[in-house]
Nucleic acid binder design. Structure first.
Lengths: 109, 109
DNA sequence: ATAATATATTGATAATTATCTATATGTATA
DNA sequence: TATACATATAGATAATTATCAATATATTAT
């Protein structure tokens, strides 16, 4: 239970940076090489490399070496893990009402 | 464009902590007061207060004062922003193929 | 083997984060 | 008004993060 939160949190952490969100957006058009991606940013090559490492270590992005180049693509299954977590959240959210007496006992005592 | 990534990234950041994900999960059952939530964690009251501030400032959670208690609930619209980002990503992801010659020109020269 | 190109790693740094203890603020009750 | 309770804020700290310049590694072409 706790562990599940932790694993989703680490994926979310990988997505909690604007540069990496833009990378994900770029990759949603299909596989891309690092050098082409770099042109879309005003960051240095080591910084892009760092972000790609974050994304691949999170499992959200797959990396493969093609000769001299690195090609990256989205791992849709991993992305779906996140989506289904939030959809679960929504499902239960609908049914229940507020417990208006949630704290009364403790306060009275 | 950049700004959009930044605003989504800040929502993602609010969701990139296991404690806060558990809070979201708890709130998915409906509105909860802080004191009841605290029982589900092994953190101190100030730490919970800190996390609730993160969540409310991100817009994901609404807060209202009910006498002596704070009651929190999910703002589903804001949470849906996250899901729809993932769905956008997925939509475009399907259609395109890999550009196998992405870097050839530069390397040849 | 050398040179050129693409990417990764290292080391440094400034900024941010999650956590605690101690204290302050706000609200209801005796 | 004084007390008790719920929550927030302040201040401190250890850990993590995003970034860069410099350098290393890997791959291909000459």
């Amino acid at each position: 239970m706790e562990k599940d939160y932790r694993s989703i949190a680490s994926i979310m952490k990988a997505l909690s940076d604007p540069t990496r969100l833009k990378i994900i957006d770029l990759l949603s058009d299909g596989e891309q090489c690092a050098c082409n991606m770099l042109e879309n940013f005003s960051i240095t090559q080591p910084t892009l490399s760092y972000h790609m490492k974050m994304l691949t270590e999170s499992g959200l992005v797959r990396a493969r070496k093609d000769g001299i180049w690195m090609k990256y693509s989205i791992d849709q299954e991993k992305l779906d893990e996140v989506v289904s977590f939030f959809q679960q959240t929504r499902r239960t959210n609908v049914k229940n009402a507020v417990d208006k007496n949630c704290c009364v006992k403790k306060a009275v005592k």
